[in-house]
Design a protein around this nucleic acid. Structure first.
Length: 684
DNA sequence: GAAGAGAGCGCC
DNA sequence: AAAGGGCGCTCTCTTC
């Protein structure tokens, strides 16, 4: 039988070692309760050998590191560190061995600057026990920087804690209605405090009753690693501090698992959120390549056009700053056009309004043009300082950044990049970029979560909005057209289909007939009739939506299909906003569940193709793969995404859309020319 | 001068 | 009384 590459050598090496000497038992008392500093390969080998001969249940880990590059200073004092320039300094390891209802802790601190440690550390990481850390992303970065593969089983106490407390700290609660002054002030203070402190390791220690010796010095010691001479000797305090975090993580772990069990969340943490820590970290580590020349061209064109428009606005209309609401108000007041912009008791000069009335006054069309160009990028994607040491941009991918379980991105906000700018994202030579999208998945999930057989059937037919249109607008569609193929119908009746889309999304987001009326410019009465007729198609959904908000309001939380809860911060009468998210969260969050499930599988399966996830886009994966494997990777992605949906929703038969057209860059539906067209004519 | 609110808009 | 879920970013203007 053929052995896989590398195995022959490994077996040979192992048998040589075995013939030399067999390991001797080591005395646990020597390590128990102590912190052992590991500063050479022999000590590292002894540490691993010790770990392999003890009945370890789990291992706490922590790393100390610095960055080879200074951070990029962004607005509001935030700093963006380049993960590809991370320089690992120390790894602390705290092995937990169950004993007498508690645990023995064997703690080691490894100097990662020592050469030749990788084989021993790799062997340690291969141990089949959970490796526990607090905000494991940076630990994974350190391992990957050293060329060490991550452990198979990981647990992140940060992600665990965030998962168990979603919702209550949402900014929506910072301004509670019907609250007295004292309530409001307290709520605000608490939520600010929550956001900043409640997820820190020291806060978890307090919550779980875990002693943490060095709380007072934590900030100073943490900084000491960032500032230190990279070849300097570690102080005793630094070593003890590094050990402390690994020890704390190891002690918190079983207590947090117990808390998760009590919140019905352990299944989800084990099977979705914890593996996603790894997947998410790898996505951030991978980053993506920007076409720097084109980025510069776009920036320059934007500035050039803005300058011209701003000069004209000032010269011809006296508008010095078109971004100023105050100045626009004054201008339109003086020109007697203010009423055009009246909206809800105030005046809105948003782009929609400017477009609507651009024929009324030449200033309006100028303003509209200026706004369109100005708005092109506020995501930070044109900031080339964010290109890392590896030539790629590494946006921060915030796990559970949203209180529904969704991701957010920042520095830059990749998820908010205007579609037309997607072709700025390119790939390495020899690779291609592809995207696979789960079509209309939130509608399918809503149908399944709220148990509406009619909606499920429509979703499974292939194009849910077309199926809706056939029923809702049956008087407007000739019977012969009802049998058209999905694509043909979609094209011919796109206007009716779009209406259905608005209705469906409106339902999921809690829109009322008043909102629909305002959006479509119809009367409230008309909107109400259409609304009733639309929901009449889905009686089960209609009933479930009405019931759910009330029931979940009593209970105090909504929950996704895998068990992720979003909590209310208060009891009592539901606000409109709470009623909306209580209904929406099971949909949005369950879609996020299955999406992460798919991503975790892909993260593993991509390795054999040399492929990587570039961007998780809520219901789509953007990936980069060697061109020769691009189609295979796309197929694999499609299969895994469908499969993940069916693990929790076997009644659904989801469709996917594969885009591997023009794989030299990321694009919308194969349109690789959108940036170049913008450069030619920004207003086209 | 910093911080927060509000407007506005990009994405799903 | 208001009337659309989840985000991040940037700008203006007000307030402390």
């Amino acid at each position: 039988m053929e052995l896989l590459a590398g195995w022959k050598e490994r077996i040979n090496a192992a048998s040589v070692a075995a013939s030399e000497s067999l390991p001797l038992p080591q005395t646990p008392a020597f390590y128990a309760g102590a912190v052992t500093f590991v500063e050479n390969t022999e000590a590292a080998a002894r540490m691993v050998e010790f770990a392999r001969q003890r009945p370890i249940s789990h291992i706490g880990i922590d790393t100390e590191f610095t960055y080879a590059r200074p951070p990029v200073l962004l607005s509001r004092g935030t700093r963006a560190y380049d993960p590809s320039s991370i320089a690992p300094l120390m790894l602390s390891v705290s092995m937990a061995e169950p004993h007498d209802g508690g645990y023995h802790a064997y703690t080691f601190v490894v100097d990662l600057r020592v050469d030749g440690l990788v084989p021993a550390l790799q062997e340690l990481m291969r141990l089949p026990v959970p490796f526990v850390g607090h905000f494991l992303k940076v630990e994974l970065f350190c391992l990957w920087q050293l060329g060490i593969a991550e452990p198979n089983i990981t647990w992140d106490t940060w992600a665990g804690e965030r998962s168990l407390g979603l919702g209550a700290t949402h900014p929506g609660y910072r301004l509670p209605e019907n609250a007295d002054g004292i309530d409001a002030t307290r709520a605000k203070e608490e939520s600010a405090e929550d956001d900043e402190f409640s997820l820190r390791l020291t806060a978890l220690c307090r919550r779980y009753g875990v002693p943490y010796e060095m709380a007072d010095e934590k900030d100073r010691l943490q900084r000491s690693f960032l500032d230190m001479d990279r070849n300097g000797k570690f102080s005793e305090a630094q070593i003890q501090y590094a050990a402390e975090d690994a020890k704390a993580a190891a002690v918190i772990y079983p207590r947090q698992v117990l808390r998760a069990v009590c919140a019905g969340a352990n299944h989800r943490l084990e099977s979705i959120e914890m593996p996603w820590v790894r997947t998410n970290a790898r996505i951030e580590w991978n980053g993506l390549r920007l076409d720097a020349d084109r980025v510069r061209a776009v920036s320059e064109a934007r500035e050039r056009h803005l300058k011209v428009l701003e000069a004209r606005l000032e010269r011809e209309y006296g508008i010095k700053n078109f971004r100023s609401h105050t100045q626009l108000y004054r201008f339109f007041d003086e020109s007697g056009l203010l009423d055009l912009f009246r909206k809800k008791g105030t005046y809105s000069f948003d782009r929609k309004n400017l477009k609507l009335f651009r024929e009324r006054h030449s200033a309006i069309s100028l303003l509209y043009a200026a706004r369109r160009i100005y708005d092109l990028d506020k995501t930070g994607m044109l900031d080339l300082r964010l290109v890392g040491a590896d030539g790629r941009v590494h946006p921060q991918h915030r796990q559970l950044g949203a209180h529904t379980g969704r991701q957010t991105t920042t520095a830059p906000n990749l998820l908010g990049l205007p579609k037309a700018l997607r072709p700025l994202c390119i790939c390495d030579p020899g690779n291609g970029i592809g995207e696979v999208d789960l079509s209309q998945i939130e509608v399918g999930v809503a149908a399944a979560v709220y148990g509406d057989a009619v909606l499920i059937a429509m979703f499974n037919s292939g194009d849910v909005y077309s199926e809706m249109a056939k029923v809702f607008y049956r008087d407007l569609i000739p019977p012969a057209d009802l049998g058209l193929p999905v694509k043909a119908f979609k094209k011919k009746y796109s206007h009716l289909r779009d209406r259905m889309k608005v209705f469906t999304l409106g339902i999921m987001y809690g829109m009322t007939p008043y909102g629909i009326a305002a959006l479509n410019g119809i009367s409230v009465l008309e909107a109400r009739q259409q609304w009733a007729r639309f929901l009449g198609m889905f009686p089960a959904l209609k009933r479930a939506l009405r019931e759910s908000a009330v029931l979940y309001g009593y209970r105090g939380y909504s929950v996704t299909v895998s068990g992720l809860r979003r909590y209310r911060a208060s009891s009592g009468a539901l606000s409109k906003w709470e009623g909306n998210w209580l209904v929406n969260h099971p949909v949005q969050g369950s879609a996020a569940d299955v999406f992460k499930l798919a991503g975790n599988r892909l993260d593993r399966l991509y390795q054999q193709f040399g492929a990587r996830i570039v961007l998780p886009f809520h219901d789509a994966f953007v990936f980069e793969a060697p061109l020769c494997h691009l189609h295979a990777v796309a197929e694999l992605t499609a299969v895994e995404m469908k499969h993940a949906v069916q693990i929790y929703f076997p009644c659904l038969d989801p469709q996917v859309e594969i885009n591997v057209k023009n794989p030299e860059c990321w694009n919308k539906d194969g349109d690789a020319g959108s940036v170049d067209r913008w450069l030619l004519d920004p207003l086209a």
